[in-house]
């Protein structure tokens, strides 16, 4: 007999030895806390959506506008704030829509796809924020480095090239660290799922 057929026969025989839970046991079980990955994805994603905006809570806006006025950045800040708010609303909407589509009723492939899509919305949002850092910082540094206040304090022999170089290294390290942290988090959450997904759709037939 084929070994796998033998296995199948034994598998059926084993049904008798399976545990048997009562209705009461099952009633209790279904009200316990879930340890589903989706719950974690939701919590972490919401945190990721919020965290880039936490610093704004601690900003003293009167000082901020003064600072902006001093460096002639008022309109710049208004435009960027507007863009930021539109973008965050867009990403929250996209995240929510994808999150809602995650259902254990889907087939395996769909379920994995929907989870990956949900995380993708967060990933793009992180990219956007990481991309904004060099842009915002460059403009800010440009304005600061060209202000008379800064130039007065700068020692005579310092070349502007080295000042800019330092500024860029600082920006680069900040972005790289944030990116690494994000990749780590993303990896912990989705590595297994992604490899399962790849395996499932491999063969190029699907």
């Amino acid at each position: 007999m084929d070994q796998l057929e033998l296995l199948k026969k034994d598998w059926k025989k084993q049904e008798g030895s399976l545990p048997k839970l009562s209705r009461e046991d099952i009633s209790k079980l279904i009200h316990k806390k879930s340890s589903s990955i989706v719950k974690w994805i939701f919590i972490i994603s919401v945190l990721e959506l919020i965290i880039p905006y936490i610093p704004y809570l601690f900003i003293d806006y009167s000082k901020n506008t003064e600072f902006a006025k001093e460096f002639g950045l008022s309109s710049f800040f208004i435009i960027f704030s507007a863009i930021f708010y539109i973008v965050i609303i867009y990403f929250i909407f996209r995240f929510y829509k994808n999150y809602k589509s995650i259902s254990a009723n889907s087939n395996s492939k769909e379920l994995m796809q929907n989870i990956i899509k949900t995380r993708r919305a967060v990933k793009h949002y992180i990219w956007f924020n990481l991309g904004m850092i060099p842009l915002m910082a460059s403009i800010l540094f440009y304005k600061i480095f060209n202000s008379t206040e800064f130039l007065e304090k700068l020692p005579e022999e310092t070349s502007m090239t080295s000042v800019w170089l330092l500024a860029f290294i600082f920006i680069l390290i900040t972005v790289a660290l944030l990116w690494l942290f994000y990749r780590l988090l993303y990896g912990i959450l989705l590595n297994k799922l992604r490899s399962n997904y790849k395996e499932l759709i491999s063969n190029g037939v699907d």
Partner: peptide, 15 residues
């Protein structure tokens, strides 16, 4: 339906 949800949990949802 149970096969589907049970396998989804085992493969994807369960930590």
């Amino acid at each position: 339906w149970m096969y589907r949800v049970a396998l989804n949990t085992a493969i994807t949802l369960y930590r």
